[in-house]
Design a protein around this nucleic acid. Structure first.
Length: 894
RNA sequence: GGGCGAAUAGUUCAGUUGGUUAGAAUGCCUCGUUUACACCGAGGAGGUCAGGGGUUCGAGUCCCUUUUCGCCCACCA
């Protein structure tokens, strides 16, 4: 048995260390508050979170932690990823792999900068006033002060990551990687700088990427007006943003539009400003929409920008960075864009140009962070031509180098990458990786790690999008671009476990950059979890007031129930509605484990030498529980291999509570208290083995309670965290034992049912008699089960020659009939009624099974084992029916 | 406009390649302090697996379709 083999030479050494922390005697309940912090530091101080605990040639298993925002606080999303990743890491560690979980935090450019700006605002100052240098100093100070909060909180969940390898995206090493990547991409001609139309956030005063813009359908207005054309003509046009009229550089119609084609090539005049612009034709125009004519504002609209490229139109930017109008807006300069909209419309109305304003539902782009309306604006930014990278990223998933779980996200991934646009990577922020570039007075660009020689070079002020550095995370954290030993050993990583909401932001970019710079997929599996919602399925938000604080839950129930709940209440890619009632239920499960362990441990002989008798030497209940255990191990193995961790957890739960505790432990009391030495000892061995195995199976789910109990397990060689993962041993599979035990259990259930139905005092002992069919030996030998589990201490076996008893209730299971003499209590009519119901149920089932077996199609086409199973079932049902029918004719024929 | 997911007991959810009488937790009802556990045990009620059609010997599971809810992507002024 594995745990015997584990009993190594250094066993006692480990113990002495571990035992110091362990109480001598098992307590009544699990004091998780005391145990959690003690066990965590015990693990950590002994270096068991480190991959070096495995042999130097062990296979590796590496997970890069999705880095939380450095100044953030733990929320349920963190608790979820931590529970899942720790589960994978602990499982692989127990399987003997060099398991490495690399933790770290993200500088989170915009989020952190906003926090500091808010702080400055409260102090009555702002970042421009204190300047860049001071601002960064303040931010670093803030980071030093609060940066440890989230990682301390992750420890409370039991996260077994290698804290010595913790990284921060603004570390020197990672910054170096960022520069390296930027410079290489620039040299490869994939990064370019220039004025382009970008998504501009007037609130944050920076450009943002397409992904950072939320598009919401909103109720707005569509403004119709007449565009003046030379020769006293007009062309009707519609717009949702009248203020952009000031930046119009053309009016566009469809070339085949009979209404307007005579105007093509004429000159139009921008209202109020009277600037002359051409009327052009382009097939982009939809003749059916609005008036069928389109005003073109290339500097403030993405479609117009494209049209302008085709027609070499002028770009006139009429807005400032804060979305007020600039001098090109003429008399409107200085006005806010929305104020300008009203005023200009009023002025146009006075000029008799307006036609009508109608309600109109359209899509408004809003900043994902601030919520203000995003303004398409021309500005000079840095862009990454990402198509070549995207192609490789698509290929890696298509050829199976990377597997996405659940699979349906692959399609979404392809669609995004196949339609990807250049990535605007510069941000007008201060907190972040500064772009390593200098611009000369003549507009020449120099990109490098150190400033160029000569004078007249201005350093680039912008920083990089936060996701640019996160995109390097799996390899930058391991030392890249240096060929460090860690990089060699631990890259590529194994699983990227994160939420589906950042598939594009993060996962896709890691794949693209990983492939591009290391020629390897940065991980082989992407496991996407869902979002945590409240118990009504609503999104968690501060404004709704439905936030759930994981730390409060840990304080109340412990980390184990929270972890177990998070892992078992969902399936990959699906959202989880979290309800504290679920955690309370799993807290009771923790108690159940504790109590079961307490029972087992307090019933062992002091000098027990763990070993397991061969199957032939075990009694029926032991053969049964061993067979069941073996199946559970195999099933859990399969579920883990296919990333179905939740189902694995549920199966262990059901086995431990529903089979081991409810049945085996109850039954074991007989051999333990009344059996001979041999059966006593063998029962103890089995109890210990099953407990031992369950603790190991559960450790990745619930590390604390399992490790704490492990400290009491005789024969343990190492701490549970680095003990071996259970293996299924086919020797203990035993179909016959499972069949026989099932009959015994069904009989017990039947007796209990009848007793309750007839209102028999639970304390009252009844003697029963049994027509055992083919199961005489089992029933005779294990009749104590009836004594213990349904208070029927004595049983008479009836053989064929004896007449069937009267004044009894009968329980029929397979070919066994159990008679419960309830002298004076049995109401014959009621009993007949019960038996009749039972009989018709059986007849129904027999008819159904018969129909199946008489169907040649079924017999010929179904798998043989399925057909065989139906045959067995029919035999069983027929035997039961016969018993019932005999009973009925004896008791109820009158 | 395209795509995806969900719909199973009062509630929250499982149900892994199609195969016994569809499970659990929680809630509800009845009973019980039996030397691991009342943070418990025993028993029970509760489901036409959203509707319709199809494939199949066999469908909660596969296909088509409808409905409701949710999400993602998308340049219609």
């Amino acid at each position: 048995m594995p745990f015997v083999l584990e009993f190594g030479r250094e066993a006692f050494l480990f113990y002495l260390k571990g035992q110091v922390h362990m109480t001598k005697k098992i307590s009544k309940t699990f004091d998780f508050k005391e145990a959690e912090s003690r066990l965590y530091s015990w693990w950590e101080q002994n270096g068991w979170f480190k991959p070096e605990i495995a042999p130097a040639d062990a296979e590796t298993f590496v997970v890069s932690m999705p880095p939380p925002n450095v100044t953030g606080a733990l929320h349920t999303g963190h608790a979820l990823f931590s529970s899942l990743e720790d589960l994978m890491i602990r499982y692989e560690r127990m399987r003997g792999k060099a398991a490495l979980w690399v933790p770290g935090t993200d500088h989170a450019g915009i989020a952190t900068q906003l926090q500091i700006e808010k702080m400055l605002q409260d102090e009555g100052t702002n970042r421009l006033e204190i300047g860049r240098e001071e601002f960064l100093a303040r931010t670093w100070a803030w980071k030093e002060k609060y940066g440890g909060t989230i990682t301390r909180q992750l420890r409370r969940l039991g996260a077994s990551c290698d804290w010595d390898r913790e990284r921060f995206t603004l570390d020197d090493g990672l910054s170096n990687a960022v520069q390296e990547v930027f410079i290489k991409l620039y040299e490869q001609g994939l990064i370019y700088r220039g004025p382009r139309l970008v998504n501009w956030s007037p609130g944050l005063q920076t450009a943002v990427s397409d992904l950072e813009v939320d598009r919401e359908e909103e109720q707005g207005k569509l403004y119709y007006f007449n565009y003046p054309i030379e020769g006293e003509e007009f062309i009707p046009v519609a717009t949702t943003r009248p203020e952009t009229i000031l930046g119009d550089t053309a009016v566009c119609v469809h070339p085949k539009d009979d209404r307007y084609c005579h105007l093509i090539g004429k000159t139009a005049y921008v209202p109020v400003l009277n600037r002359a612009i051409p009327v052009i034709a382009d097939e982009y125009v939809d003749r059916e929409f609005g008036t069928g004519a389109l005003k073109i504002t290339p500097a403030h609209d993405f479609n117009d920008y494209e049209i302008a490229q085709r027609h070499n139109l002028l770009l006139i930017n009429v807005m400032n960075r804060d979305a007020t109008m600039n001098s090109d807006a003429g008399p409107y300069a200085g006005l806010d864009r929305f104020v300008c909209r009203e005023k200009l419309w009023g002025d146009m109305s006075a000029l008799g140009l307006t036609l009508r304003v109608v309600d109109h539902t359209h899509i408004i782009p809003r900043s994902q962070r601030g919520g203000e309306v995003i303004e398409p604006l021309i500005s000079t930014q840095w862009f990454l031509k990402i198509k070549p990278l995207a192609e490789r990223a698509v290929a890696a998933v298509r050829d199976g180098s990377i597997k996405i779980v659940p699979e349906r996200f692959e399609k979404i991934y392809y669609h995004w990458l196949e339609n990807i646009e250049d990535w605007c990577i510069s941000r007008q922020l201060w907190w972040g990786h500064r772009i390593p570039a200098w611009i000369s007075a003549t507009g020449e660009i120099y990109v490098g790690k150190v400033p160029p020689k000569g004078s007249g070079w201005t350093p680039e002020e912008d920083v990089l999008d936060t996701w640019f550095s996160s995109g390097l995370w799996p390899f930058s954290t391991l030392g890249w671009p240096d060929e460090t030993p860690d990089l060699k050993r631990f890259y590529p990583t194994a699983v990227m476990e994160t939420g589906y909401d950042i598939l594009f932001f993060w996962v896709a970019r890691m794949i693209m950059l990983g492939l591009w710079f290391t020629d390897q997929a940065p991980f082989n599996t992407v496991y996407l979890h869902g979002l945590i919602r409240d118990k009504y399925g609503r999104k968690i938000s501060k404004t709704l007031g439905n936030t759930i604080d994981p730390l409060e839950l840990i304080d109340k129930y412990g980390a184990d129930p929270l972890r177990f709940t998070l892992v078992t209440s969902g399936t990959p890619g699906n959202d989880i509605n979290l309800d504290s009632e679920k955690i309370e239920a799993n807290w009771r499960f923790v108690n159940k484990i504790w109590q079961a362990a307490n029972f087992v441990l307090s019933n062992l002989q002091n000098d027990i030498q763990p070993s397991l008798p061969p199957r032939e030497k075990l009694d029926l209940p032991s053969r049964w529980i061993m067979s069941r255990l073996t199946r559970v191990i195999a099933s859990v193995q399969h579920l883990f291999d296919t990333n179905l961790y939740g189902e694995a957890g549920r199966q262990i739960y059901d086995f431990l509570w529903g089979e081991f505790a409810d049945w085996y432990i109850e039954i074991s009391k007989h051999p333990l208290y009344e059996g001979d030495d041999e059966s006593k000892s063998s029962t103890q061995q089995v109890l210990l083995h099953v407990l031992n195995t369950c603790l190991r199976l559960l450790h990745p789910f619930m590390p604390f309670v399992t490790e704490e109990l492990w400290g009491f397990i005789p024969g343990r060689a190492r701490p549970l965290i680095i003990s071996s993962w259970p293996q299924a041993h086919a020797d203990y599979l035993d179909d016959q034992a499972e069949v026989d035990m099932t009959i015994m259990m069904e009989l017990v259930r039947g007796v209990r049912n009848v007793r309750l139905e007839y209102g028999v005092d639970p304390a009252r002992k009844i003697s029963g008699s049994v027509a055992p069919g083919d199961h005489r030996a089992v029933i005779e030998k294990y009749s104590y089960i009836f004594a213990r589990l349904c208070n029927v201490p004595s049983i008479t076996i009836i053989d064929a020659t004896m007449s069937t008893p009267t004044d009894v209730a009968s329980i029929v299971v397979s070919d066994v009939t159990f008679y419960l003499p309830l002298a004076g209590m049995v109401d014959i009519a009621a009993e007949c009624d019960r038996l009749n119901k039972e009989q018709s149920k059986l007849q129904e089932q027999i008819a159904r099974t018969n129909a199946m077996l008489e169907n040649d199609q079924f017999v010929n086409r179904a798998k043989p084992e399925i057909v065989e199973r139906e045959r067995m079932k029919l035999k069983d049902l027929s035997a039961s029916l016969q018993q019932i029918s005999e009973r009925l004719s004896a008791l109820c024929s009158a």
